[in-house]
Write a protein that binds this DNA or RNA. Structure first.
Length: 514
RNA sequence: GGCGCUAUCGUCUAGGGGUUAGGACGUGAGAUUCUCAAUCUCAAAACCCGGGUUCGAUUCCCGGUAGCGCUACCA
């Protein structure tokens, strides 16, 4: 297996050429990691990266580590963290070390390691590889916009680099807030040796003097990731392509610390059908959504393994263990794969049909939705609305469905035209996306606000939403239902309803126009 | 704008200096089936463009173009 070492630091005639190089054989145990940031729903992109890291580790008989990158205090939250762990475990991507299972290099949660980062930042400061920056966010903002206006590359201008030690001391004595930035060579090139792409050259002049330690004392990704990968003995950093341009910063940090650089490998990014980076606005990205839709973890993880990778024999259906057994980084293709839900669904069908006995199928159905937890959330909503248990079917069908298969006519409404309904859907969709926490209160607030904005009584305004979300105006209460269904499913249903009405434009008024 | 990455059917991909460029999803047609699925058969469908290297490039090199990413006290 590979182990990469930092190579030459040839600073010849003011031309810094720093290069990471992957050296040959090494006896080190392969250790990989996935390092999600707990700032939202568990993302399929996280699972995809985790999968490749998992396979590299398992194939080599090494270890796979889960680390939580929660240094963004404002955006990180424990619910998201819990959901990420649960989702990855659901997919079968078991980790050897992590926040919940522990391990010899813990804690595996960066917010618990601030002291460590501070120590290393202090070391860089002491050695002159980093400096305190007292510039205010306002100044930086002005600087950036001025640079943009002038058509210059935005970046820190190095002002605080010129502070004399005495000046810096005075500012500190006055407890002026500061951040720690890294020093970056101003010329020369950095060579990033990517396992997949080979040699990538990036000029130092394009690398900003990144903040390493934020004003709140938390490290940025760049510092934390390097320090932790070193301390956790990570040998292969396998992450998304989006990180290529910051690789020089990381290589430089390893260099400053005198540490070997792990092997670097940048995976192609999962894409929306329009080829942009996979995003929830255009596609369901939450693993929770796929679980709720009734995809099997085996199928989802299998499909993710079809993204950018293929089995040597071309077989498309395989287990995680089979993939890990045959895994070879070299078989990764570099074009960004479009996440195609149709093919995922086909694959899921195969898993369902070909791999489950009737007993197992029944068990899966129970686990999926006919479980006590889910039922107990629905029962309070339906009990008062039925006089026969058999009325449960139609009343709760939408809780057990994916796509609702609606007809534009279902939305016909005496008080709201199709046009207004479309606008309402669009506005609410945007409002719901903004929500930090998905619960009844927050959902209620969004809908009420929109109803006001459209100058409708809430009950009138809500009618098309009942149809879009529950398939009918005869239904359990909307806000509760939406909370239970979850954000992704609601988003998908509303978006689909919107598309349905938009493409079926000629409603009642101008049917003859074209 | 700057820097970087990428480029085979609509989509996921195999392949690779000489091939009828292979498979899969999806699409269309047919078969089978009490319906519908499933299954089977068949069909349409691709090497981004221009130079170079070469006896020969889709494959190797360069350029262009396009797509994407990054350009934060987010990761």
């Amino acid at each position: 297996m590979f182990h990469s070492l930092l190579l030459c630091v040839s600073v010849a005639n003011a031309c810094a050429i720093i290069e990471s190089r992957n050296l040959g054989a090494s006896t080190l145990t392969v250790r990989t990691r996935v390092a999600p940031s707990p700032t939202g729903d568990p993302h399929v992109g996280t699972a995809y990266t985790a999968l490749f890291n998992y396979c590299v580790a398992r194939h080599a008989g090494g270890q796979f580590i889960l680390r939580i990158e929660d240094t963004d205090v404002a955006r990180s939250n424990p619910q998201s963290q819990a959901a990420i762990l649960e989702s990855l475990r659901w997919l079968g991507l078991e980790w050897d070390e992590g926040p919940d299972v522990g391990g010899p290099h813990g804690p595996y949660q960066q917010s618990l390691r601030s002291e460590t980062y501070r120590t290393y930042a202090a070391q860089l400061l002491e050695q002159g590889h980093a400096f305190r920056c007292f510039c205010t966010p306002e100044r930086l903002e002005q600087l950036r916009s001025a640079q943009q206006r002038a058509g210059v590359r935005p970046g820190y201008d190095g002002r605080c680099l010129e502070l004399s030690p005495a000046e810096a001391e005075t500012l500190r004595a006055n407890s002026t807030p500061f951040v720690v930035r890294m020093r970056v060579p101003r010329e020369g090139i950095c060579v990033v040796n990517d396992l997949l792409r080979g040699r990538i050259e990036i000029g130092w002049e394009t690398v900003d003097m990144q903040v390493l330690l934020k004003q709140d004392g938390m490290p940025t990704y760049h510092l934390a990731n390097v320090v932790d990968d070193r301390l956790m003995e990570i040998t292969h950093v396998i992450r998304g392509e989006e990180w290529i341009s910051s690789a020089p910063k990381h290589i430089l940090l390893y260099n400053y610390f005198g540490w070997p650089v792990p092997a670097l490998c940048h995976l192609p990014l999962l894409r929306n059908p329009d080829k942009s980076k996979l995003s929830k606005r255009r596609n369901p990205t939450s693993i929770l959504y796929y679980r709720r839709m009734g995809y099997l973890p085996e199928a989802l993880v299998n499909y993710l393994g079809l993204m950018a990778w293929s089995m040597p024999d071309g077989e498309e259906k395989f287990t995680l263990a089979q993939m890990a057994g045959k895994f070879d980084l070299k078989r990764i293709s570099l074009g960004g794969p479009v996440f195609d839900i149709k093919k995922l669904t086909w694959l899921n069908g195969r898993w369902l049909r070909e791999n489950l006995s009737d007993e197992e199928f029944a068990e899966r159905v129970q686990e999926w939705a006919l479980n006590r937890d889910y039922l107990m959330r629905i029962v309070p909503l339906v009990k008062s609305r039925v006089s026969l248990l058999s009325e449960l079917g139609p009343l709760t069908a939408f809780f057990l469905s994916g796509d609702l298969n609606l007809n534009p006519k279902d939305f016909d409404d005496k008080k709201m035209s199709r046009d207004v309904i479309c606008k309402a859907f669009a506005q609410v969709l945007a409002g719901l996306d903004e929500l930090v926490t998905w619960n009844k209160e927050a959902i209620t607030a969004v809908l009420k606000q929109s109803a006001d904005a459209f100058q409708f009584k809430l009950r009138d305004f809500l009618r098309p939403f009942y149809v879009a979300v529950a398939g009918s105006t005869t239904s359990t209460p909307l806000f509760d239902s939406m909370e239970i269904l979850g954000r992704d499913l609601c988003r998908v249903r509303l978006r689909r309803a919107l598309e349905l009405l938009q493409t079926a434009r000629p409603a009642t008024t101008d049917a003859e126009v074209d």
